[in-house]
Design a protein around this nucleic acid. Structure first.
Length: 284
DNA sequence: GTCCCGGTAG
DNA sequence: CTACCGGGAC
């Protein structure tokens, strides 16, 4: 913590932390969101939701989540599913590599951990598609462990509570220390739900709060990007095999762009190629 | 049309 | 640090 940090030990700060907790809990009791992945304790279901929620708004996940769980209700069913099927169900979520990572994680949970998600943070962190935010969320939501973590809503809430008058950018370390300080160790699961809901509320009330975070990055435009093209190619190939020429014509993009996208998608295993035609990934 | 929102991996 | 998706707000 920096010298002017807001959460150094001391009587005043202890009071401040109690106030923050009280505000957050009060808001949660009144306006907390009842989300499908919050009413379950099934590790698989919570794991799926956390992968889906990466870089993806709650409203979109709400739509896809039940469909995905119907198609793949367990670690086993997901692990055995053909990649093409998983990608097909995933369509609309964006960032298709998450679907690969999700199935790969299911396989590792079965093969390495006998179908039981490990409690250990580093073991979670080593699963494909699981970074610090997701590992922390899984620790809290599945295992009720007091692991502080940062994601966008938590970041926003902490900036609001502890750095509202600060002019400078706030670093991740500082924010993580705040997260650890306010964490209610009696109930980490509900505490993080509450803090995230508070942050989500702030987004509507005070836009752009997160720009005070060092973590904040402005995004490259989506229109005309390779990302957009990749998504289109995957969606197209799932409907039926296509040649590069077809893909170029149908997407209206340059041959170079199409070639670049195809090479990358092949390398990542999101498509396959046979006799000049591109297909969804092969079975098993 | 332009901008905004959101974690992980290489 | 950069690449990865898509929908919704303005």
């Amino acid at each position: 913590m920096s010298s002017r940090g807001k959460i150094q030990r001391g009587r005043g700060n202890a009071v401040r932390i109690q106030e923050v907790r009280a505000v957050v809990w009060r808001y949660y009791r009144a306006k907390g969101r009842k989300l499908p992945w919050r009413v379950t304790h099934n590790p698989y279901r919570i794991f799926v939701s956390e992968i889906m929620l990466q870089q993806t708004q709650v409203e979109r996940v709400l739509k896809k989540y039940p469909q995905f769980l119907r198609a793949f209700p367990s670690w086993e069913s997901l692990a055995r599913a053909p990649l093409a099927k998983v990608l097909a169900v995933w369509q609309g979520m964006g960032y298709n590599r998450r679907a690969l990572a999700l199935r790969a994680s299911a396989r590792r949970v079965l093969d390495e951990y006998g179908g039981k998600l490990p409690r250990d943070y580093d073991a979670l962190r080593s699963l494909p598609g699981v970074g610090p935010a997701t590992a922390g969320a899984l620790s809290a939501f599945i295992f009720q462990l007091p692991v502080p973590f940062l994601e966008t809503n938590i970041r926003r809430a902490l900036l609001y509570f502890f750095f509202r008058r600060t002019r400078n950018k706030v670093g991740e370390r500082e924010l993580l220390e705040c997260a650890a300080a306010v964490l209610d160790r009696k109930n980490p699961r509900e505490w993080h739900y509450a803090l995230m809901d508070y942050g989500a509320m702030l987004r509507k009330e005070t836009p752009s709060l997160n720009r005070k975070s060092e973590y904040y990055r402005r995004q490259a435009p989506f229109r005309g990007s390779l990302r957009e093209l990749r998504g289109k190619i995957i969606a197209r190939v799932l409907r039926g095999a296509a040649s590069a020429a077809q893909l170029q014509k149908e997407t209206g993009r340059t041959r170079e762009d199409v070639a670049r996208a195809l090479v990358a998608l092949l390398r990542e295993g999101l498509i396959t190629k046979k006799g000049g035609y591109y297909f969804p990934p092969e079975g098993n």
